[in-house]
Nucleic acid binder design. Sequence first.
DNA 1: ACATATCATGCACACGTTAACAATCCAAAA
DNA 2: TTTTGGATTGTTAACGTGTGCATGATATGT
Lengths: 335, 335
Amino acid sequence: MNVTIKDIARLAQVSHTTVSRALNDSPLINSETKEKIKQLAQEMGYTPNFSAKSLVMDRSYNIGLFFSTLNTGTSAGFFYETVRGINSVVKDAYNLVVRGIDDYEHYRSIHRKSFDGVIVMSQSAKDEPFLHHLSEAGIPHIVLNRKVEGLPAINILSDDSHGSYKVVNYMIKKGHRRIAIISGKEIFHSTLERRDGFVRALQDAGIELKESYQVGASYDLKSGYTAMLKLLALPERPTAVFCMNDDMAVGAVKAVHDAGLQVPGDVSVAGFDDSMFSAYLSPALTTVKRPIEEISRQGALVLLESIEQKTLAPETIYLRTELVVRESVAEPAKA
Amino acid sequence: MNVTIKDIARLAQVSHTTVSRALNDSPLINSETKEKIKQLAQEMGYTPNFSAKSLVMDRSYNIGLFFSTLNTGTSAGFFYETVRGINSVVKDAYNLVVRGIDDYEHYRSIHRKSFDGVIVMSQSAKDEPFLHHLSEAGIPHIVLNRKVEGLPAINILSDDSHGSYKVVNYMIKKGHRRIAIISGKEIFHSTLERRDGFVRALQDAGIELKESYQVGASYDLKSGYTAMLKLLALPERPTAVFCMNDDMAVGAVKAVHDAGLQVPGDVSVAGFDDSMFSAYLSPALTTVKRPIEEISRQGALVLLESIEQKTLAPETIYLRTELVVRESVAEPAKA
DNA sequence: ACATATCATGCACACGTTAACAATCCAAAA
DNA sequence: TTTTGGATTGTTAACGTGTGCATGATATGT
């Protein structure tokens, strides 16, 4: 049997009310008795019953971390860094509950009583109904990784468009003109952003966009592999390929090798994310660093703050992406 | 304001007790009224208040997933697959709460009221005090990934020793005699297991163990890189190197390349885990498949069962590992 | 010495749910 | 008719905690 404040009250010869106040540092209580009670609680190994607390305080002490999906399209490194970033902030003040949005058929079971706040790692516009639900239910929430258009929200995301601009621009500076792109899932918002940077960089350099140099994939290794195969089969194959994430870049590099060609000798390849392994590939991957852990940490901080203060001003915070130059992009071979 | 069973009771002209019974499918209630109430609840958008439920039922509806650490040593793929496996079983019957054991200074706040059950993804013997705490606190729990010695527990793990035996044996069959090993953190139990298989394979083949062919690392990419550098600097360098996980193998391969050598031409390399990316490296990594997602799924199933039935018989379930032959191990060059 | 302000504590209820026990109704048995 | 008993429903308390209000004690000011 667990000790309750009533047990403490009995031993301390006071009412359970006094104990409750003492443990919550109420200014109403004499500091001596307060100390006495606190020490007693400590000795008896008291821990509050959060169910009871929740019931009366109308709080759940749960923070929800929702991904668009936990199945396909979410890369392991991305997932890991997100959880780590948030966990480092949340500690044990709250329970961090991890979920996939697509696990739900309806959102009825998600309400203010079950989550004090929600962090949405939003990858796709498909999440919109879920975000609407959070708004209607009055659950404090923040959206990471994606700018949501319809409704006001707190957004924290990286400047993906600018990031991909930088890496493509870098390719151009190296002398590439035949530059292709391997895209991720069309439904993901970051896909649009990254393509936008690609297109802008090409336009600014006066390079024409070729339809055949844009091939779709789905952010996983295999899709990057097959996409690159398509590009290599082209009559005039590109000299540089920008992949929308590192996973696909790994697949793409593999495809180049399997075709008996070299990276970057025959084809330059760049990725996006700066996954942990990208520095250790051969050749080391030139990519764009995206501060996922930092985004997550900041997001958690903002959310906790807004939970305490009950005041959440819609805002959008952009965190900088950073070009990471390694070995996989070089000057094109003289044609 | 949320609707409660009392609100439903008022509209249905019954007592709140009847509503509670109806919604819980009690056989005491007339099936007509039961239907009527259920429908009404549906229309009113009723969702139970879990705090109240928890308080009276003495359950938290929380399942804890504890990793030894969320910081260093836990690889992203491992983490991701674990969460996925468990999540696929737990669904929304429980909240899945993710934590790192090393986040805690004391375990006082972890008790039967805060977790209905706990899944420990245990990587190190350092977890022992935590496991003891769970036992003492009477919290149903299972231990994944590691055989715990001291106290009775439900264990689900892969047969790592046998797995590494298989891959090292494969190297020997290919003709290697100078075989080295790159170890992970000594504190991790799997490190001992995998070394055991390595040693046995060598002994069975009558190959002498060389001290200089055993170098320590810490399961991350970088440590694999530097460990391989040491091996390459040896006067008589090994022809094959077994890395205790795929991450280190990636680092090791990189080191070989940076030294101007080839895999598997000059040095064969094998890993462990069969991470998602290992098939897409160049050369594709020969490794041992470890069914992490399956272990997690099974573990979750067993835990849920034992929570319902209140009966948990200590047992140890081993899941098979599997040699995955790819390109990174070949016959040694004629010396 | 008395009124008043300040401080410290206790009483009683509330939160939403379940469950032991009591109560009612109606049909069947005596 | 009276009794028994099953089927339904209601009454009440309980879970552990926080809080508005009342109460008592002590110090302050006149």
